[in-house]
Simulated scan of single mutants.
Amino acid sequence: MTDLSGRTALVTGGAQGLGEGMARALAAAGAKVAVADVKDDQGAKVAESIGGTFVHLDVTDDASWEAGVAAAVEGLGGLDVLVNNAGVEITSLVTELDPDDVRKMLEVNVLGTALGLKHGLRTMRPDGAAGNGGVIVNVASVAATIAFPGISVYSATKSAVDRLTRVAAMESGKLGYGVRVNCIYPGLVPTEMGVGLAVDCADLGLFESPDAAVAGVVELTPSGRLGTVEDMADAVVFLASDQAKFINGVGLPVDGGMGM
């Protein structure tokens, strides 16, 4: 339903989970896709399977972003869409927070997104290497809108992604970059990260079992189920498309109503 033929896209954290699903969905919609990740073997396999290209990218490193985006532009022939998906979640009670875990989430989720915005905007704006404007989609989380136990710092980082999104959209508009910037709030999806969260919450004594943790999420969700990778990928494709051409600076909940 959404045609991205002739577009080029870069997806961070594209070697697995939501990022892989987003890369596949963008390719299925017609885009040429660069899969970016620190997991070289997995990322290269995904890229090969969708007829795309692989880029090694550590989202916490400025130089890695500069080199990775340049490689993507060269390999794809431009850059129209950037999906800042890479993220980490480390479950902990507030009373038991480990400073190293906090720093890791801040670096990957906040710094990584901020650097993605920096290099995406520089590349897509009129004087950039691609220079034709475009779309940036950041991946926040329903955790930015609810008070779910065990994920205090993760929630804080995803709230930061929302604020980064809105300010970047305003700057892009004011400075004539021609780049729309939005984010999505995924609900819980049973990827490796999502399953790990359920297990961790049970281990912390917040729920009787991982299944009880999942049931607690479903109970809070009017749609009555967990999200799927496809649900999140479809939202990214929509925001990347011309169907969303007047949608800018917003956070789109893709959470079955959990965060309403």
Rank of each mutant, 00 (worst) to 15 (best):
T2E: 12
D3F: 11
L4N: 07
S5R: 06
R7H: 11
T8Y: 03
V11L: 02
V11W: 04
G13I: 08
G13F: 09
A15C: 10
G19H: 15
E20F: 10
M22L: 08
A23S: 06
R24K: 11
L26E: 07
L26Y: 09
A27M: 10
K32N: 07
K32Y: 08
V33C: 06
V33W: 00
V33H: 00
A36T: 10
K39E: 15
D40A: 09
K45C: 02
A47M: 09
A47R: 07
G51C: 10
G52M: 11
F54Q: 04
V55W: 06
T60W: 06
W65F: 10
E66D: 11
E66V: 12
A67Y: 00
G68C: 01
A70S: 14
V81R: 11
V83A: 07
N84F: 04
G87T: 03
V88A: 08
E89D: 14
E89I: 15
T91K: 13
L93Q: 12
T95S: 15
T95Q: 04
T95G: 14
L97F: 08
L97I: 15
D98L: 02
P99H: 09
R103Y: 05
K104Q: 13
L106I: 14
E107V: 04
V108Q: 08
G112H: 07
G112R: 12
T113L: 14
G116S: 09
L117V: 05
L117I: 14
H119A: 13
G120R: 05
L121Y: 05
T123M: 09
M124T: 12
R125A: 10
P126Y: 14
D127Y: 07
A130V: 12
A130E: 09
A130I: 05
G131C: 05
G131F: 05
G134C: 09
G134H: 15
V135T: 11
I136N: 13
I136M: 13
V139N: 03
V142H: 13
A147H: 01
F148A: 10
F148E: 01
P149S: 09
P149R: 15
P149H: 09
G150Q: 06
I151W: 00
S152D: 07
V161P: 09
R163P: 00
R166A: 12
M170R: 14
G176P: 02
V179P: 05
C183A: 15
I184R: 06
I184L: 15
L188K: 06
L188S: 08
P190N: 13
T191V: 03
V195Q: 14
L197G: 13
L197A: 13
L197W: 07
D200F: 03
F207A: 01
P210A: 05
D211H: 01
D211L: 02
A213E: 01
V214R: 14
A215C: 02
G216C: 01
V217D: 00
E219W: 00
P222S: 05
L226T: 11
L226E: 03
L226C: 04
M232K: 06
A233S: 10
V237A: 02
A240Y: 01
S241Y: 14
Q243C: 03
Q243N: 08
K245A: 13
N248L: 07
N248S: 06
G251I: 00
V254E: 02
G256P: 05
G257R: 02
G257N: 09
G257L: 03
M260L: 15
M260K: 06
M260T: 05
